[in-house]
């Protein structure tokens, strides 16, 4: 009896337990982020200026929206390659409506709905056919990008509506609006993944689909939801981008999905599904954001920036993988 007690007893975490478990899980990312931070503080003059830091936050916000949604998708064992095109597609819809004189809030709502709808279509195809998400979302990317070029005839749409420009360019006090949305998106994702039933169902789906189905989890619904969420976040990202640039360019968002995937994986969420979390993603997005910003401040030629960014991401992901392997080897799996 004594023994059984010991087996099942549960110690409530002490004060700071949350922080401690956060650190053990994400120690690699935190250290890496601090190193990048320290390096840039010394290597450049204006990295630490509040002006620059706010600027970085504004820059990373669009990646953060899509990365948060992508975290849920990877946890469920899927992937979304259509993000960049969905940004352009929904940006285009908002742009056209706005130029036609439609009030901004209707433009925004339509644009977000369009994003949700295309995401839902991908999710619907994936959940009802069992085609690989990689292929489905890749095709969607191609279809939407083509559509955007056809409809805009590859022309840029220039925006004039004040409210539209305020949406991504303005700020609340000293905090830019996009950063406000970013914080809300992070909180919402955290609540879904860590506090709701839906979140647990996501981890179960990615961890073992069969077991999830046998447990009465509606895996199909979850898949449709996450892709719709991803489409919505891509649309938000497209709106903010368009607003900040005061114009909608048909090439908007090209390659965006890769930055998001890199950020999420950098944050420790596995591409195999069933593991990870949004806090890691926040760290991953921050790391990539600081690297981008730092390379600009260092006035590095933009071609070299690509190379440099690729190498740094590779190293960071490798270090995280090493850490996980070491932990697993200790336990023999």
């Amino acid at each position: 009896m004594e023994k059984e007690k010991k087996n099942t007893e549960f110690k409530m975490p002490k004060m700071g337990g949350g922080l401690r478990s956060f650190l053990t899980q994400y120690i690699g990312q935190v250290v890496f982020l601090l190193l990048v931070f320290l390096f840039l503080s010394f290597a450049t003059d204006n990295f630490l200026s509040s002006q620059n830091l706010i600027n970085v936050m504004r820059q990373i916000s669009t990646n953060m929206y899509v990365s948060c949604a992508l975290t849920m998708i990877l946890i469920c064992g899927g992937i979304d390659l259509s993000t960049g095109s969905v940004m352009a597609f929904s940006g285009m819809i908002a742009g056209f409506l706005s130029l036609a004189g439609v009030p901004f809030w209707i433009c925004a709502a339509c644009s977000l709905l369009a994003g949700a709808a295309v995401g839902f279509v991908s999710g619907f195809i994936i959940s009802s056919t069992n085609l690989p998400p990689f292929i489905v979302t890749y095709s969607m990317q191609s279809i939407l990008r083509g559509t955007v070029y056809v409809i805009t005839s590859a022309n840029v749409l220039r925006l004039t509506d004040e409210a539209f420009l305020e949406f991504g360019g303005g700020s609340l006090g000293f905090i830019p609006w996009p950063v406000v949305y970013m914080i809300l998106v992070i909180i919402a994702t955290y609540m879904i993944l860590n506090l709701s039933r839906l979140g647990r169902h996501m981890y179960a789906t990615g961890g073992n689909v069969k077991a999830a189905e046998f447990s009465g989890i509606r895996v199909k619904r979850i898949r449709r939801f996450i892709y719709a969420a991803s489409g919505t976040m891509a649309a938000l990202s497209g709106l903010v981008y368009t607003s900040r640039n005061t114009s909608m360019q048909p090439a908007l968002g090209t390659g965006m999905e890769m930055d998001a995937i890199a950020a999420v994986v950098l944050g420790g969420t596995s591409m195999g599904g069933g593991q990870g979390g949004v806090l890691g993603t926040v760290l991953g997005v921050l790391i990539i954001g600081f690297i981008n910003n730092g390379l600009n401040l260092l006035r590095m030629n933009s071609f070299w920036q690509y190379i440099c960014k690729g190498v740094v991401i590779l190293i960071a992901v490798y270090l995280d993988d090493m850490k996980n392997k070491r932990m697993l080897r200790a336990t023999g799996k």
């Binding site: 039933r197 647990r200 981890y203 179960a204 961890g207 073992n208 069969k210 077991a211 999830a212 046998f214 447990s215 009465g216 989890i217 069933g274 593991q275």
Partner: peptide, 20 residues
């Protein structure tokens, strides 16, 4: 194959069907 989520905890697995 059909019953467990291997990467998750005992607690997660035990309570997965009674989250409500």
């Amino acid at each position: 194959e059909e019953g467990i989520i291997p990467l998750q905890t005992v607690r997660f697995n035990t309570t997965l069907k009674v989250l409500q």
